[in-house]
Write a protein that binds this DNA or RNA. Structure first.
Lengths: 176, 176
DNA sequence: GACATACCTATCGGGCCGATATATCGTGGC
DNA sequence: GCCACGATATATCGGCCCGATAGGTATGTC
């Protein structure tokens, strides 16, 4: 039937909605606290995409105002559930992207002042340490959603600790 | 003077051009082989950006056709050199982004068939192994440009090996 | 009652990717 | 000498996406 190709953001939305009825606002919040280090979204993407998904029959929106404040709560339709499952079990190539200005500066570091380079390496390391610390403080998120969210959180902590270690070693190799 | 704010792509272009006069085509090739795992560009970005940079006086393009094939070779102006230096030594916050559909699928894995999940973990691991192998095969790139490029290459190999190890451990923890 | 903070929807400018189109050059095979 | 093919080179389009901003209501606190 509805042989829909999901845009990347649509997949996140369907997944988050399956964790419980959600408003666009809640989806954004959830992504920000639980997936920030490996996925981002923006309101400018979420609200139009929710409408597109509703038009495609993959989600259903119900008006559920809080007093005089308009509010639309979304839930998955059967088709939306199937589309999410189809994506989850498809062997399609998975997007993996990284965009790191810290590495870019290192790449172009020829001829720069060694002291400046050392400062740079330190600040990049501190950035990773800060991310790891924030993930640790945050604690488990999206409880009751299976082992995925805690595993992903562990991944984020371990990755950022590894990154911090790499930049630390780079710093030391410059000194030597 | 020219208090120019560089777009992210502009920084890559200036850096690559400083490594030697370059055409848009060569810039794209260089990014693809040496920075692919942490930065990307596209022709659709490079050519318009080169023109913008020329208009801002940061690069200078010279026509240098190969027979009947048009070709424009760019070099840095003094202002472009200064703008690149200014960015390299600025303490501005550095973009760091990751976009990983593998983690996304893991995040939403609740209720899925364990065998499917194991397949997923394996394919993500193999992806990282393949990237590490490709970087290793590629060998050093952009020689004579200081310690940056080889260090970045080492980073890429080490990162992807670490990633492969993490997914491997995740696989084993599922089995247990 | 005032004020800050959280909740909720919406939109715009512009960066950016992937694909595609067009054309020439160099090389190897025949 | 010719053809096919891959590399070189520039250009553009559709569409995804981010960050910022704007405008509004509810809730909690002093």
């Amino acid at each position: 039937m509805s042989d829909v190709t999901l845009a990347p953001t649509a997949r996140v939305i369907l997944g988050m909605v399956r964790m419980g009825k959600r408003t666009g606002y809640e989806i954004k919040q959830l992504v920000d606290v639980s997936a920030r280090f490996f996925w981002t979204t923006s309101y400018g993407q979420i609200y139009p995409e929710l409408k597109r998904l509703e038009k495609q029959g993959l989600v259903r929106g119900e008006a559920d105002p809080t007093g005089g404040r308009s509010r639309t709560v979304y839930s998955l339709t059967r088709a939306g559930d199937a589309a999410l499952d189809a994506w989850l079990s498809s062997p399609d190539e998975l997007v993996w992207e990284m965009r790191d200005e810290g590495l870019l500066k290192l790449f172009f570091s020829e001829g720069r002042d060694p002291a400046e380079l050392r400062d740079h390496l330190r600040s990049v390391r501190e950035r990773s340490e800060a991310v790891a610390a924030r993930l640790r403080e945050l604690g488990p998120v999206a409880e009751g959603a299976g082992p995925g969210p805690p595993m992903v959180r562990e991944f984020g902590i371990a990755l950022n600790e590894w990154l911090a270690g790499w930049w630390k070693r780079a710093e030391e190799s410059i000194d030597a």
